[in-house]
Amino acid sequence: MPELMQPKAVQRTEAAGRHFSSIVELRRYTLHPGRRDDLIDLFDTHFLESQEACGMTVIGQFRDPDDPDAFVWLRGFEDMVTRHAALTAFYDGPVWSAHRDRANGTMIDSDNVLLLHPAESSSGFALPAARPASPTEAASPAVFQVVTYQLKRPADQGFRSYYSTSVAPLLQGRGDNPVAVFTSEHGENTFTRLPVRQNENVLAVFSRFDDESAHKTHRAALENDAAWLSEQTRLAAYLTGKPLMTRLLPTARSRLR
């Protein structure tokens, strides 16, 4: 089976720093209207270093510009055993105890969580060694796009090969810059206090664009592209529905930026 095309972020030099996570949670929260900045302030002030001190990596946290009441973030773990230990340490620890009521008060739902692992050994996130130190620093102008393909069968049963040879080259030729590719992790949820979406098969592709203009140019190029439009029939044969495309804007202290 051909390997998925290597994300550009992984092609950067090691001097930029690497924080590879074998297990990643993609978490999307539905918030009470007007409360997103309150939660972002809590995260950027209290929930980054404190989680990482417990043995995990907070990969990035984001606003969804198309949904003012959504907060999206990613955290990673070395494996499922480490995940249990790290989450137990944090959620039983003093920082969460001090701020959980304020955090939970912003949320309507926090159970929309995909548990993922890199599709290939080289397709996880490559991250800088450090994040911005202060929430007052200017946020990155970058736009991250995550496209989630909901699959009829596990990704390794044909879809990964098809995506690598047919879909990925087409998208990259029209300005897509993939930085990571993940598939569903079907291992047991080792921290049952936090539910995850189980029994789903997805391929999640993360791409980075320098700014909103670059992302708009890419999307516009696809709208009238004959090759892309003709590929939709083949693509649909693998899927349970249309791919879900989400735009993500990094917060000021997001490591992924």
Rank of each mutant, 00 (worst) to 15 (best):
Ile40Tyr: 01
Glu14Trp: 14
Ala168Lys: 12
Val202Thr: 02
Pro118Gln: 01
Ile23Thr: 07
Thr233Phe: 04
Arg193Phe: 14
Ala139Gln: 10
Met56Glu: 11
Thr240Lys: 05
Tyr162Glu: 11
Ala139Trp: 08
Arg131Glu: 05
Gly241Arg: 14
Leu235Val: 04
Met56His: 11
Pro2Val: 14
Met107Lys: 08
Ser213Lys: 14
Leu222Ile: 09
Val202Asn: 02
Phe43Tyr: 10
Asn112Gly: 05
Gln157Glu: 15
Leu170Met: 01
Arg197His: 05
Phe47Ile: 00
Pro7Ser: 08
Leu256Asn: 00
Thr13Met: 13
Phe71Asp: 03
Ala15Lys: 12
Ser21Thr: 02
Asp109Met: 00
Ser123Ala: 03
Leu171Glu: 00
Lys242Thr: 09
Ala129Thr: 15
Arg27Cys: 00
Gln150Thr: 13
Gly187Val: 02
Asn112Leu: 01
Leu229Arg: 11
Arg208Pro: 08
Leu235Gly: 00
His46Gln: 09
Met107Ser: 05
Gly34Tyr: 03
Ser140Val: 05
Thr217His: 11
Val113Met: 02
Pro195Gln: 06
Arg255Glu: 05
Asp211Asn: 12
Val181Thr: 13
Thr165Glu: 12
Pro94Gly: 12
Leu26Thr: 08
Ser213Ile: 13
Arg255Thr: 05
Glu3Ile: 15
Asp38Ile: 11
Pro33Lys: 08
Leu203Glu: 00
Leu74Trp: 10
Thr82Pro: 05
Leu4Arg: 09
Trp228Cys: 07
Asp69Arg: 08
Asp111Asn: 14
Arg35Lys: 14
Asp41Met: 09
Leu239Asn: 01
Ala138Gln: 13
Arg253Met: 13
Tyr163Ala: 15
Glu14Gly: 14
Glu231Ile: 09
Ser123Lys: 07
Asn189Lys: 07
Tyr149Trp: 06
Phe62Ala: 06
Pro128Val: 00
Leu114His: 05
Ala226Thr: 14
Met56Val: 13
Val143Ile: 12
Ser140Lys: 00
Ala126Tyr: 10
Leu42Pro: 03
Ala9Val: 08
His117Tyr: 09
Met245Phe: 15
Gly175Trp: 03
Thr183Leu: 12
Asn104Ala: 10
Leu42Val: 10
His186Val: 07
Cys54Gln: 01
Leu31Lys: 04
Thr136Val: 14
Glu120Ile: 03
Gln51Met: 04
Gly34Val: 02
Leu171Met: 04
Arg102Asp: 15
Asp66Asn: 13
Glu212Pro: 07
Pro169Ile: 07
Arg160Gln: 14
Phe71Thr: 06
Ala85Val: 13
His32Asn: 10
Asp37Asn: 10
Arg12Phe: 10
Met5Leu: 15
Gln6Glu: 15
Glu120Ala: 07
Thr82Glu: 13
His84Val: 09
Ala119Ile: 06
Ala138Asn: 12
Asp79Gln: 13
Glu200Tyr: 03
Asn177Trp: 11
Thr233Pro: 00
